[in-house]
Design a protein around this nucleic acid. Structure first.
Lengths: 250, 250
DNA sequence: CGCTGGGTTGATCGCACTCAACCCGCGTGG
DNA sequence: CCACGCGGGTTGAGTGCGATCAACCCAGCG
């Protein structure tokens, strides 16, 4: 019996390259395609999944806590952040539908995972999930690929944080969001920022003021257009030039 | 017939938690322990491995090139770095014996991997390696763990780059090196820095001058002691306090 | 109506960057 | 033998980018 899940991005579920959320029976097809699981084994999956419907600012996992679960985001967005004792905060990643919480985890969570707006997610018992991976090598290799992708994104982010100017960081961040939107089957040019300026700042290693100033600077330079809501239109050529760091001081 | 490999860190090979370098026959025992490979399948591994003996400043992989190989470091140290068009450089990781080059890679290398001093490494054909992973699920899950570890390190580094002061970055870097030395079976307190100040700067998102100043500042504060060569003695308590960012302005 | 969260803009400050000089050890060659 | 260049490192003086502090705007909401 299919339940009434509503996906923000139905297109996401049709891209075979992504490991999408196996919530119950209704995504059986996708599981078999994406995770290398035979159709007749799906019941084993369905019975170990808990479907979560979360409000804004809910914590899926907390830094330092015992890592008992593993999540897959179904809809909405999640931020992963680390804290310093005095309250300084660094967001180490944003997760969107299809992404996993718990890839970089051994025994305790290394970060707090908090929802940005309402989120739907699938939750697995960690141990159960490990056993599933043993049974279904396709799932395991898929997961390995995803971990690789995350690592590549993290390394790109290290480049931003370590060597790029505020303008370059904002530019490459917007382009990154645009790419992720495209991968989710959403429009890649007028993009929507699901997170606040504070979150962007905490991701880019800047202050909220610096982000705000940089955005208006990009706006007045006609490199982006700020629309209603959190819509942003990107003028790719010039934005790419800046984001990739072509000696840009301008 | 065992060949005359000399390991910088023989102790490394005895820690079952690490996936050590399977160069030829002589590490058969470790393979079977660490990679979940049956002893009688080792020939399959041995025959697809190329043993490399590299000088200083040799490139194992170059950013943007086709990712044809997969490496495991046997001895020495390697830096992974990304470049911006105008020459700015960010080191995204240091690799030591037992570590892999190519974890975060899909089709092309996302970084350049360059040796720091003489290095010995094992090289696999990428496709062959993928096939091995299919045959030996133990290897695959081991690799997944390693990717997770790398990701966790990367996230910790994002925190440093985004939110820590120069002093805090240097402190946590030294502590990180100390931990890695311990995992390799080397002394964890008087540690040796295998890399230059320039490399440290490019890893920490600082300039060489900032690194130098910070080191002398830590030295005059009696928090570290700079010895001969590239030896550094750490005074853990205070260094940890700084490195973990306890509001430290002092 | 006031309060709050999110965002923008202005003025000033300070940390790390930049530019520069200098030291040391080492290898090379006249 | 010394001169020289070079890579690696340290130290000093001045600058600038982004942080900090502060004021303000706006929309939503009880």
């Amino acid at each position: 019996m299919p339940h009434n899940l509503s996906f923000d991005t139905p297109e996401a579920l049709t891209t075979a390259s992504r490991l999408v959320s196996p919530c119950g029976q209704c995504e059986a097809r996708h599981l078999s395609v994406c995770m290398g699981v035979e159709e007749d084994c799906l019941d084993q999956l369905a019975c170990v999944i808990t479907t979560l419907r979360l409000p804004s600012h809910a914590a899926l996992a907390r830094e330092g806590e015992n890592a008992g679960h593993f999540f897959n985001i179904t809809s909405g967005a999640v931020k992963l952040y680390k804290l310093l004792p005095d309250g300084r905060q660094q967001i180490v990643g944003f997760l969107f539908p299809g992404d996993f919480v718990g890839l970089a985890v051994r025994d305790t969570y290394a970060y707090t995972a908090e929802t940005i707006g309402p989120v739907m997610a699938c939750r697995f018992e960690r141990r159960t999930f490990e056993r599933l991976l043993e049974r279904f090598p396709g799932m395991a290799s898929c997961l390995r690929e995803r971990a690789s992708d995350e690592l590549a994104i993290a390394q790109e982010q290290m480049l931003s944080l370590g060597r790029k100017s505020a303008k370059e960081r904002v530019a490459s961040f917007l382009l990154q969001l645009s790419q992720r939107a495209a991968r989710l089957g959403l429009p890649s040019n007028p993009i929507t920022l699901p997170m606040t300026r504070t979150d962007i700042a905490d991701y880019l290693g800047l202050t909220i003021e610096a982000v705000s100033r940089t955005m208006t600077q990009l706006k007045t330079s006609r490199i982006i257009t700020l629309g209603t809501g959190h819509m942003v239109t990107l003028h790719r050529e010039r934005l790419t030039e800046i984001g990739e760091g072509w000696g840009g001081c301008s």
